[in-house]
Computed example of a mutant assay.
Amino acid sequence: MQTDQEQIRALIERWAEAVHTGDMDRVLQDHAEDIVMFDVPPPYEGVRGLDEYRRSWPPFFEWQAQGAVFDIESLDVIAGDDVAFAYALLRCGTKEEFAANPDNRLRLTLGLRKEDARWTVVHEHHSFPLVPTDQDEPEEA
């Protein structure tokens, strides 16, 4: 029998593979009806509920179909009896983006709850680090 950490890790790995292949049913599979997601693109107040979550994915799938990757590089899981969280770093980008910035990683944090002996994602947060550009650097006096 799998531990809670193993169950959650498998759930996240299935989700990441579903995102990579653009399989919407599998992306939604282990997410709660009341999910809240804070994502890289707007809306700034986040995505609330499974219907909004579902509607947020097609633009990403279209971008990814042009050759981008979505691969888990590291994943840590901490689980209690009925709540858990996980954090991960993912390679998410195109060959051109990685050529320009090979160290860039998508940061992922997930909050989960256990209901009826089943783990579900109730919170998802994606972010990229802010990478300064030449325009962001102060001018010298």
Results as ranks from 00 to 15, higher is better:
residue 67 G to I: 04
residue 129 P to R: 10
residue 84 A to L: 11
residue 67 G to D: 07
residue 17 E to Y: 06
residue 107 R to K: 11
residue 138 P to N: 03
residue 130 L to M: 13
residue 2 Q to S: 12
residue 119 W to N: 06
residue 15 W to P: 00
residue 55 R to I: 00
residue 119 W to E: 04
residue 29 Q to K: 15
residue 130 L to F: 14
residue 113 R to S: 10
residue 105 R to A: 00
residue 91 R to G: 01
residue 75 L to F: 00
residue 86 A to Y: 02
residue 74 S to R: 12
residue 69 V to Y: 02
residue 100 A to H: 15
residue 132 P to M: 03
residue 128 F to W: 08
residue 108 L to Y: 00
residue 127 S to W: 02
residue 54 R to P: 12
residue 113 R to N: 07
residue 130 L to N: 11
residue 57 W to P: 14
residue 99 A to D: 12
residue 42 P to K: 05
residue 24 M to I: 13
residue 123 H to M: 02
residue 102 P to V: 01
residue 45 E to H: 14
residue 8 I to F: 05
residue 35 I to D: 04
residue 24 M to H: 14
residue 50 L to H: 10
residue 36 V to H: 10
residue 28 L to Y: 09
residue 122 V to F: 15
residue 68 A to N: 11
residue 98 F to R: 08
residue 83 V to T: 15
residue 17 E to N: 15
residue 57 W to G: 07
residue 62 E to K: 14
residue 6 E to G: 07
residue 48 R to C: 09
residue 81 D to N: 13
residue 89 L to H: 06
residue 119 W to D: 02
residue 24 M to E: 09
residue 113 R to I: 07
residue 97 E to D: 12
residue 138 P to F: 05
residue 76 D to G: 14
residue 35 I to V: 12
residue 132 P to R: 02
residue 51 D to E: 15
residue 106 L to W: 03
residue 135 Q to D: 11
residue 48 R to E: 10
residue 59 P to D: 06
residue 106 L to M: 12
residue 95 K to P: 09
residue 28 L to A: 09
residue 114 K to E: 09
residue 100 A to I: 07
residue 12 I to A: 03
residue 32 A to H: 11
residue 128 F to A: 01
residue 46 G to S: 04
residue 7 Q to P: 06
residue 4 D to G: 08
residue 39 D to C: 05
residue 136 D to V: 01
residue 53 Y to C: 08
residue 125 H to T: 01
residue 10 A to V: 00
residue 54 R to L: 06
residue 78 I to S: 13
residue 23 D to N: 14
residue 82 D to C: 05
residue 14 R to T: 05
residue 22 G to F: 05
residue 89 L to F: 02
residue 77 V to Q: 12
residue 140 E to P: 11
residue 12 I to W: 03
residue 7 Q to F: 01
residue 134 D to Q: 11
residue 136 D to T: 06
residue 112 L to M: 10
residue 117 A to P: 03
residue 98 F to K: 07
residue 69 V to E: 05
residue 110 L to M: 13
residue 117 A to C: 03
residue 10 A to G: 04
residue 14 R to Y: 03
residue 18 A to F: 01
residue 127 S to N: 07
residue 85 F to V: 03
residue 99 A to F: 03
residue 61 F to R: 12
